[in-house]
Simulated scan of single mutants.
Amino acid sequence: MDSNKKKKKKKNVSNVSQLANLYQVSRPTMRKWIQPLLGQLGEITGRLFNSRQTRIIIGHLGDPE
């Protein structure tokens, strides 16, 4: 059961490359798309977006195909 929680949590944490792959765009394009959301996202620690930040990004961009 703990391994399921870890897997689920890992899916919610992503970086620019993972989001770019998900939306099938380049990393520079994804960065441009995320730029207007930086105020809403709050502090980004390291290269990863936490689950809340990822939900905000996906909510703004819509569900990937």
Rank of each mutant, 00 (worst) to 15 (best):
S26I: 08
N15M: 02
S14E: 08
E43D: 10
K11D: 05
L38M: 14
V25L: 01
S14N: 02
K9H: 14
L37R: 12
T29A: 10
L61E: 03
A20R: 00
F49T: 03
T45N: 11
F49R: 03
K9D: 12
S26G: 07
L48C: 08
I57Q: 01
I34A: 11
Q35K: 15
L61F: 09
I56W: 02
K32Q: 13
R52I: 06
S17F: 05
W33E: 05
N50G: 05
K5F: 13
E65C: 11
Q18G: 06
S17R: 08
K6Q: 13
N4D: 13
K5D: 10
R52N: 04
R55E: 13
L61Y: 04
G46P: 04
G46V: 03
L19I: 09
E65K: 15
K7E: 14
V13D: 00
R52K: 09
D63P: 01
F49W: 09
L41V: 13
S17G: 03
K5M: 12
P36D: 10
G62Q: 03
N50M: 06
L48A: 08
D63V: 10
L48N: 12
K32P: 00
N4P: 00
G59P: 04
I57F: 04
L22V: 02
S51V: 02
K7F: 07
G46D: 10
G42S: 06
E43R: 04
H60Q: 12
G62Y: 01
G39W: 06
D2G: 05
K5S: 09
I58T: 05
R47M: 08
V25Y: 01
N50D: 15
S26P: 01
K6L: 13
E65M: 13
L38S: 06
N21L: 08
I57Y: 02
G46N: 04
Q40G: 11
I44F: 06
P28Y: 08
V13R: 08
Q18K: 09
D2H: 10
Q53T: 07
S3I: 15
M1R: 10
E43Q: 12
Q24A: 12
H60G: 01
G39R: 07
D2R: 14
Q40E: 15
G39I: 10
M1Y: 10
M30A: 10
R55K: 14
Q40I: 09
K11H: 06
K6R: 15
N21V: 08
G59W: 01
P64Q: 03
V25C: 07
P36R: 15
G42P: 06
N12Q: 14
